[in-house]
């Protein structure tokens, strides 16, 4: 049951996201994409979950290593994505400023 609810949430958030992002002007499409890099890093939540399970159930070391790699990669996206986006947006200035 829960799984079908999740599929529904996936679809609804995609539609809502589409409508909201449709308002982003082409001027900001590059920062938008690097912002999306950051958000795709939110897969770190999944990485944390599976790594937590691996740690608690004394799974083979390999599972923990795979989990750790997933966390590192996802965090590079989160921190790097938001950082680069912030740096880029700082450059956008109006005349006279």
């Amino acid at each position: 049951m829960m799984q079908y609810v999740l599929i529904g949430i996936f679809a609804v958030s995609a539609i809502v996201g589409y409508l909201i992002i449709n308002n982003v002007p082409p001027l900001l499409h590059t920062p938008l994409m690097s912002g999306m890099n950051a958000l795709s890093g939110i897969t770190v939540l999944g990485a944390l979950t599976v790594t937590a399970v691996a740690l608690k159930h004394s799974s083979p070391v390999l599972s923990v290593i795979v989990g750790v790699v997933a966390i590192v990669l996802a965090m590079i996206n989160v921190a790097g994505g938001f950082g680069i986006t912030a740096r880029m947006l700082k450059m956008f200035k109006k005349e006279g400023k």
Binding site: A14, Y18, M33, T49
Partner: peptide, 14 residues
């Protein structure tokens, strides 16, 4: 993970 599902959908749409 509900949040991951929703954010994934948003990034996909974007």
């Amino acid at each position: 993970d509900l949040m991951l599902v929703a954010i994934g959908g948003i990034v996909g749409a974007s």
